[in-house]
């Protein structure tokens, strides 16, 4: 199980990019923290989620 935004999710084995796309995120509008470290956008494609990982997807919406 992978803890994503506080919820335990069956996402181990998925690439970060696969999870994000399946979950409906627009990759242009987010920042991803993997185990408390920023995950550079260019790493989404080649980073596999593992059991025990903690992920925080920060989704930005417009307005300011």
């Amino acid at each position: 199980m992978v803890k994503i935004n506080g919820k335990e999710i069956e996402a181990a084995g998925l690439k970060v990019s696969e999870y994000l796309t399946d979950a409906g995120y627009n990759l242009q509008n987010i920042a991803v923290e993997l185990n408390e470290n920023i995950l550079p956008k260019k790493e989404y494609e080649n980073t596999l989620l593992k059991d025990g990982d903690t992920v925080e997807v920060v989704n930005f919406v417009g307005g300011g």
């Binding site: 242009q28 930005f60 307005g63």
Partner: peptide
Amino acid sequence: FDQAQEKS
């Protein structure tokens, strides 16, 4: 910022 993409 105002735009989501720029924030990101």
